[in-house]
Amino acid sequence: MNTGNENLKWYVKGIKDGFPIGMGYFAVAFALGITAKKIGMTPLQAGAMSALMVASAGQFAAMTVIATGGGYLQMAVTTLIVNLRYLLMSCALSQKLKPETGILHRMAMSYGITDEIFGIAVSVDGRLNPFYNYGAISISVPGWTLGAFLGASVGAILPKSVENALGVALYGMFLAIIIPESRKNKFVAGIVMISMILSCIFTVVPWLSAISSGMRIILLTVVISAVAALIRPVEGEEGEAHGE
């Protein structure tokens, strides 16, 4: 079993790795808050929405439904589709846990499965301790919530230039997750390149670009990962690929 000391160590590591995420979240949520204000939401509502959903694209989609006065079923279906990638991430993360990890830990961790927290959590060495996620959540979700609240209350306190610069923070983190593995494993590097090229094609080519970004992410993830798994199944323990 994990000792308290061990848990604390993971918690602190989670806070450390989650700090840049929190900063990036603050900036993105700020923009989200400005949008929320435009459709008539109060700062409190914008903050509450962020704390409840912790989902960037998902919240944008939810606000679209609210702004257009859509039905509750439409809300459910829209958020389901836009956030379906979390289902895949949750599957992947379940394999990173010790099988005996309790259900309460699993339920608590699930709250914070975001693109970024998932990204850092899957890339820790060996098995994942839930306290790592708690650390990352406790530093980043307040940034996400506060950002939305402030965005909706004071609008543009950040100069546009700073807002633009912060816009790449989250993507920089994604790169810091996928590139080091690509450096170690040439096959992963190839997969990453193909993913980016196909993603680009799906964004530019007329009828392919009609597919929403949420669907595009799911579609490409399932197809490319499945093909990669067929061509180069991973060996050994914990899904770590070995050899070139």
């Binding site: 997750i177 992963v188 390149m193 980016m196 196909l198 798994a229």
Partner: peptide, 11 residues
């Protein structure tokens, strides 16, 4: 599942 994170984040 091993490839999922790299593909998703790249996309």
């Amino acid at each position: 599942l091993y490839y999922v994170p790299y593909v998703t984040l790249a996309v």
